[in-house]
Design a protein around this nucleic acid. Sequence first.
DNA 1: ATAAACGTAACTAAAATGGTTACGTATTAA
DNA 2: TTAATACGTAACCATTTTAGTTACGTTTAT
Lengths: 136, 136
Amino acid sequence: MTSSSRFSMAVHIMTALAFMGEKMTSEVLSNTVNTNPVVIRRLLGELARAGLVRAERGKSGGFSLARSAKSISLLDIFRAVMSDTELVPLHENPEYRKCAVSCKVRGALCVHLDRAQNVYERELKKVMLADIEKTM
Amino acid sequence: MTSSSRFSMAVHIMTALAFMGEKMTSEVLSNTVNTNPVVIRRLLGELARAGLVRAERGKSGGFSLARSAKSISLLDIFRAVMSDTELVPLHENPEYRKCAVSCKVRGALCVHLDRAQNVYERELKKVMLADIEKTM
DNA sequence: ATAAACGTAACTAAAATGGTTACGTATTAA
DNA sequence: TTAATACGTAACCATTTTAGTTACGTTTAT
């Protein structure tokens, strides 16, 4: 799979913001994650568009939570940075028209994958950023 | 994420075997999936090691289900071809020792990701290959 | 013996991913 | 008002992953 680790990284960033409780720059955040500030800013851009963080530009700018850690779920973060990602994707090889299985199997499977992803997301929804923060 | 589409492809193959109900060669299977026979054989190798299919070599060889479609769940197939794959992986950037969040956030997150993956897999376990086959 | 089919190694092409540099824009503070 | 600082984003690169492909050895039915 190696899917991407964007979600995990986003949770890391959000937890740092919650834990520190103050405005942080992408530079400082990049140190705790051990990556490049641009990577952080890109993720935070998506989190900002989802209304989870606030970005302030210019001197003495930086990022801060837009809402309380108690009100932000892991699902909120997941949706913000992984919105158009299927947990388990369908294969996209072209159909073999003559074969009923080839034509119909994706549709049949999709129903069940969607249901499974729903329960996965429902589980993420139960966990709040504050729960993660608490264990730091 | 783009994880791989190995699972979806494996379900496609297994459904074809169930639906046709007879021995099939990797050549024939590769046509219904629209890919290369070697790709099929590699997947079937993992499915065979998991005890889900039987492989016969030599002339008039081919693949067939090792168990009834009613007894094979999507989880069996998932485990066979995605065993060491996290649905959502943790980021692996090195820790920043001075920072508690950097050191602990993965552990805290991991607990919840594992639980979510468990409910995902439990959902896959409810669906049998025979259920998929029926809708063809 | 020969043909047919699996098993697997080795290689390639394409895509995804994370990281990096560079630079424009916004904002504050001196 | 100017200099410094920080975000926003485009463009590019290196690495890894993925699927596909060729090739060939091994097995087995006829």
